[in-house]
């Protein structure tokens, strides 16, 4: 069964106003469990918009989204959020760590509303940081972390709720080659663990990597071509 099904997704910004803009038109797509898929395309082609709809962060103007077979487009916000936080982990281009608190606190932040005790949350957070070789920086304020360390904190944060799908938007845009390769290595481990990974990227280092299973080419809000690794 497909993990996620998009059915005729259209996203129109500012509908009915002079600056109306169609960012996605009639996109249909299925994403199977396990594997790494990359959306690539020129700037403005709708990659971020598509990822935010797949990740249940935004609602489409038309069309349906099914997550694990459940129709989610008409769900109220609180249910959508619940599905989102248990299904998806996000890594943002700008990382978006909360400044002024420690790396560990940043990692466990998404799990606060789950009602898990802080002690056990911390324990899990430290374990995740340890896997990424960052346990010694757990109590450091995030401002003091290097770019690569911050990147790994963001990865750990995406994993704290044990999501099935990890979504990353332009994850390597701000990294040099070495850090980008480190990042891809971390993703390879996740893939080996059986997670599904979705990227938007126009970095060849990402979409030409051997671990990529599927590349979806986007242009003007549509998927125009698809290449699968054999």
């Amino acid at each position: 069964m497909s993990l996620i099904v998009l059915n005729g997704i259209t996203k129109i910004f500012n509908r009915g106003r002079p600056d109306e803009f169609t960012a996605l038109s009639d996109v249909s797509l299925e994403i199977e469990p396990r594997g790494l898929a990359v959306f690539r395309g020129p700037s403005g082609s709708g990659k971020t918009t598509l990822l935010s709809i797949v990740g249940c962060m935004a609602k489409p103007s038309a069309g349906r989204v099914l997550v694990k077979g459940r129709e989610v487009t008409s769900l109220p916000d609180r249910f959508l959020t619940d599905i989102r936080r248990h299904t998806f982990g996000f890594i943002f281009q700008q990382l978006h760590l909360v400044r002024g608190i420690s790396a560990l606190e940043n990692v466990i932040l998404p799990a606060y509303p789950s009602g898990e005790g802080l002690a056990s949350l911390r324990e899990r957070g430290v374990r995740l940081l340890d896997l990424l070789g960052l346990a010694h920086r757990a109590d450091t304020n995030v401002e003091w972390l290097s770019g690569g360390e911050a990147q790994r904190v963001a990865i750990a944060r995406a994993l704290i709720n044990e999501p099935a799908i990890v979504i990353a938007d332009e994850p390597t845009a701000h990294l040099d080659t070495k850090l980008s390769l480190d990042f891809m290595a971390a993703m390879e481990r996740l893939k080996a663990e059986g997670k599904t990974i979705l990227f938007a990227s126009h970095d060849p280092l990402v979409y030409e990597s051997t671990m990529v299973d599927r590349v979806l080419e986007m242009r003007d809000g549509r998927i125009v071509a698809e290449r699968r690794a054999s």
Partner: peptide, 9 residues
């Protein structure tokens, strides 16, 4: 950020 990482309104 809170909303993006899964906090509800």
């Amino acid at each position: 950020i809170l909303k993006a990482v899964g906090w509800e309104t």
